[in-house]
Structures are given as C-alpha cells and as structure tokens.
Amino acid sequence: MENEDIVIRVRDLVKKFGQFVADDHLSFDVYKGEIFGFLGANGAGKTTAIRMLCGLLEPTSGELTVAGLDGFKQREAIKRRIGYMSQKFSLYEDLTVNENIRLFAGIYGIPTRIRKEKTEELLEKLELTSARKKLVRDLPLGWKQKLAFSLAIIHDPSIVFLDEPSGGVDPVTRRRFWDLIYEAAHEGITVFVTTHYMDEAEYCDRVAIMSAGKIVALDTPEALKKEWDATSMDGVFLKLARSNE
C-alpha cells in the first residue's frame, strides 16, 4: 500500500474542548481504495476525529489534508468531496425513495440528465425499482441502509465515512451491506468505517484503535493479531481499548 495515493493525511492532530483533550496528537495516513477501520471504546475520541476529517469541526492544532484539501481552511470544499453515512441514516423518512435520490443528487449538484441515469442504475442495483414510490419510512432496515450508503456515494466522492453503519440488521443483511462496501472500495472509493462488530474489523485492510484520545495501534488485522497474540480482532481490542471511565 505504501506506494499508493494518500487521500487522508493526519499529523499531530489535536482537538480540545476547553481543558478537555478529545484527540491528542493523532498521526496516520489513509490510502486510496482502502477500507480503513477506526475502532475505540465509547468516549475514546472517534466521533470528534471523524467530525474533523469530514470538515464539520475545526481542529485545534496539527495538520490535516483530506482529498488534497486543507482540514483547517477548506472545510466547505472537503464536505463536497466526501460522503457520509451514520447509524441514524441520512435519509428523509417522509420522502419516497425517488424523492430521496433526487434530493441528494440535487444537494451534490448532479445535473438532471446524469441524475436520471444514475437513479435507474441505482434502483436496479439495489432491487428497489418496484419500491421507488414508497416512503423510506416503510422500507425494511436493511434496504434503508443500502439506500443510505448508495446515496452517500452518489456524487462519486474520494472518501466515504461510515459511522457504525450496520447496527441492528440480521447477519445476512449485514453481509449484503458489506458486499456494497467491498464493491465501492474495489472501484477506488476510500472507505473509512467505525464499527462495534469486531468481525467487521477483520474485513478492513487496516485498522486503527483509539483509546483515551490517542491511536494506540494501527496495522492490518493480521499483523495486529500477531503482535497482540490474539486469535481475533475482539481479542486485540480487549487488550488495547481500556474503557476510560
């Protein structure tokens, strides 16, 4: 991976809230097309870090480049180059599938002609063609997740951030969702993902583990398991991510 393009570059990144240091000198790189897992106990500083990487929060100090843009001065431009999907979805429950697609395409400035093509393509791929006029609220959870993910990448972003994207669904649906993630990465979109499912950490190319505001480990799942003498990522996590309560 060393020779590939760096799409996220983080050096000594710090975020303080008053006296409280949420993120303490984070440094790491994320490469193009990589599935990068970001793990940590609740309160470890993950969400604050993601909010900075997405341009939603200004860092206190350090260096941050996302998709070639500066994380201090070009935060608005960063927002246009990335996709984001959270646990709570980004979909409008009281709009139909079609209307949600139109809304997201509109927000990202996709021209009408391309939007129409993309809509058909997307509906077919997700097998949602017959449900296009249904309210999103009436869709099963698994379909919502797939639609939310597809809309998060509808503008072909360099990076998509997934914040605990697969909670709550059955194991088959969860894996169908990961099929989409693999596919996006295969097509060159960098995937930055947080999860509480440790088996999903194994699907990542590399994994960073945060604890008490610091990155305490960063490597491939295989190397981490070797280093920490664990048979699974669960074992690695339990050794590293002491809850800081």
Partner: peptide, 11 residues
C-alpha cells in the same frame, strides 16, 4: 449491550 463497545459489553 446494543451500541456499546466491546470492552463495556464484556464487563
């Protein structure tokens, strides 16, 4: 334990 991290789940 829904939405709770692996360490807290174990506890």
């Amino acid at each position: 334990t829904t939405g709770v991290d692996a360490v807290s789940r174990k506890e």
